[in-house]
Structures are given as structure tokens and as C-alpha cells.
Computed example of a mutant assay.
Amino acid sequence: MATPSIKEVAHRAGVSVGTVSNVLNRPAIVAPATRQRVLDTIQALGFVRNEAARNLRVGRGRTVGLVVLDVANPFFTDLAEGAESLAYEHDTVVMLCNSKTDPVREGHHLDQLEQQRAFGILITPFDSNDPRLRGLVARGTPVVLVDRAADGGLCSVSVDDKLGGRLAGTHLIESGHRRIAFIGGPLTMQQVADRQAGLTTTVEQAGDVALEIIEVEVMGVAHGRAVGEDLAALSPRSRPTAVFCANDLLALGFLQAMAAANLRVPQDVAIVGYDDIGFAAAAAVPLSSVRQPAGLLGRTAMELLQEEVEDADRHRHRQVIFQPDLVIRQSSDFVRR
């Protein structure tokens, strides 16, 4: 059975094709009685709008691409939920794309979203200065950086990660730690570099604290566990007494390694993570973590994207920066004497 056309809907409802189009795209300008008659006819006929054809006419779809570094990280799930909550209110759909911290894979997703005439793109990029991002905007696809700060040429929503690193460092130093390790990577990723920089600044100001930087290729549980196993094998005199992990997944893996090695947390090794995902508080030893407002980041990024699309002539790029806060739990709540 053939799908009913917009002309059939108009004929059955006794209105023009233009009126049906207005009901679908600008319902507020159609008289309530007429709008309801058209909607009833659409339902009776089983009419489904050809969104692909509409995209070709208007030059933009209703799909927002959300490109993240790692869909396995609950931080990005919370971020996506925040973006989707506002997208739903504006009759748009969020398509989640996983770059796996791979610039080539990220580029593939960007190409596909542009070819499909996406409403816009929210992205946590591997490299905030990637010229492809500015190229998308120049060709008409709005882009908002999420969990990254932009230099002014794009809208962005981010968290002050250097402050987050300072908060973690200050807490560990004030708790009596003088041998601290930072675990994160790749170190070329901006938020990892900023978290390390904040910690490094705090350590340097303290003057009597040793800092070890341990780079990992992937910030996942397995890599955190592997680093933990290496450090657990060291003698107590050479082992760091505290670690600051660039995300909670690394911290949770490290925590597993400490338990397997029968090392006490926080008495033998204190641990602080980053993001404050739901699993942090539920860990066997509740995890201290630098909290980011993930849902708010996603929703605010969606707001900026909506502004840019709906009022392009007057839009001015904005860079919104949120402040993190440290949530202290059992994994670091111990003062060394």
C-alpha cells in the first residue's frame, strides 16, 4: 500500500498543501480548528512526513550529532542525557557517535553528519584546534565544543580543568602526601593536560612534594588496573602514597589493583578520580572525585546550538565555563602523620 502524500492529506482535510505544510512545520500560525482537522486527517491516513526530502528543501535536518570520546564512560552518557532532554523539547533527535579518541574515526563521523545535513554538531574533540571544525561552520553546519574550551571562533561549554587539578592536589597535599602520581592520557588531550597542569602547579607551590606523571593510552578501567599493579609491586618507600587519576574509570581500575594487592585505601594509597560518575560513590571504597556537571554541560551545549541555528544573524559565539568541585569520600579521607 502506497504511503499517502501531502496532497492527499490536503484534499481529504479540505485545505491547501501550504496549510498542511504549516501544520507540520509552523503549527502556531494555523488556526486551532484547522490545525486539529489536518492532524486528524494525518492520523486517519497514516501519513508520514518524508524527512529526507524536507532536509533537501530546507537545507538542514532535525538530527543533532553528538560526537564523544568514549561511550563506555558514564560521564558521556550523562552528558548525552542532558543534551537530549533539551533536543526533545525542540523536536530534534540526538545521534550519538563514538570517536574512541581516534582522530580518523572522529573525522568519519563529522563527514557523515555534514553529508546528512545535520541540524548541528556537539563534539568533545580529540583536538580542539582541528581545522575541520571551523570548516564545518564555514560551510553552514553549526558546531559547539563540549567539555572543551574554544578560542572564540566557536561556541563551547567546558569546565575549568586546571582548577579541578588544583583542588585534587591541594586536598592530597593538605592530607600529608608528599609522593603523588598523576595517571592520565594521552597527555596531548587538552582536558588531560589541563588537569595535570593544575596538579603540577599546586605541587610546585608546595615545594616539598614529588610528582610522578604516568601516561596511559586509554583512560579505562583496565589501564587503571594495569598501572595499579605496577605501583603495587614497588616498595612502600618508593611507591606514591596518593594518586590523582584523570577520570573515574582509571581510578576504579586502580582501586581494584590495590584491593588485589591487599593494600589499604586510603591508608596505604589514597585515590582521587575525576568526573564523579555514579559508580564513584558506589565503589567498594567510595571514591573521592572532582565533580563535573555532565548533564548541565550537555543541556547548555544544546542551548547554544539552538541559539546559533534559530538566530544566526545576531548570534555571537559564547564560551561557557563551569567550576568543578571536589567530592571527598573514603578513598582519600585520611590524614597521614
Rank of each mutant, 00 (worst) to 15 (best):
S21K: 09
N22F: 09
N22K: 14
N22V: 00
N22R: 15
V23G: 09
V23L: 08
L24E: 11
P27H: 06
A28Q: 15
A28L: 07
I29Y: 00
V30D: 12
A31E: 14
A31P: 07
A33Q: 14
A33D: 15
T34I: 13
T34A: 11
T34Y: 05
T34M: 12
Q36P: 11
R37M: 13
R37H: 11
V38F: 08
T41S: 10
T41A: 11
A44Y: 00
A44V: 07
F47N: 10
F47Y: 15
F47W: 09
V48D: 08
V48E: 14
V48S: 14
R49C: 10
E51G: 08
A52T: 15
A52N: 13
A52V: 15
L56M: 12
L56C: 05
R57Y: 06
R57V: 15
V58P: 06
G59R: 03
G61S: 08
G61V: 03
G61H: 04
T63S: 06
V64K: 03
V64E: 00
V67I: 05
L69D: 02
D70I: 03
V71L: 12
V71M: 14
A72N: 12
A72Y: 03
N73W: 08
N73T: 11
N73L: 12
F75Y: 13
D78W: 00
D78T: 12
L79I: 04
A80M: 07
E81V: 13
E81T: 12
G82A: 09
A83D: 03
A83Q: 04
E84C: 06
S85I: 03
L86S: 02
L86Q: 02
Y88R: 15
E89R: 02
H90Q: 08
D91K: 01
D91H: 02
D91N: 04
T92R: 02
T92C: 01
V94Q: 07
V94C: 08
L96R: 01
L96I: 00
L96D: 04
C97D: 05
C97G: 06
C97L: 05
S99P: 04
S99F: 01
S99T: 00
K100P: 05
K100L: 14
T101R: 04
P103I: 03
R105M: 13
H108W: 05
H109V: 03
D111H: 04
Q112K: 08
E114P: 00
Q115R: 07
Q115W: 00
R117L: 13
R117N: 13
R117I: 06
F119V: 09
G120K: 02
L122C: 09
I123R: 05
T124V: 12
P125I: 08
P125F: 02
P125T: 11
F126R: 13
F126Q: 14
D127I: 02
D127E: 11
R132A: 12
A138I: 08
A138Y: 00
A138N: 12
A138P: 11
A138G: 11
R139H: 09
G140K: 10
T141A: 07
T141K: 05
P142F: 06
P142L: 10
V146E: 07
D147A: 13
D147L: 10
R148Y: 04
D151S: 12
D151Q: 09
L154A: 06
S156H: 03
S156K: 01
S156P: 04
S156L: 05
V157R: 03
V157F: 00
V159S: 10
D160Q: 13
D161C: 10
L163Q: 14
G165R: 12
G165P: 07
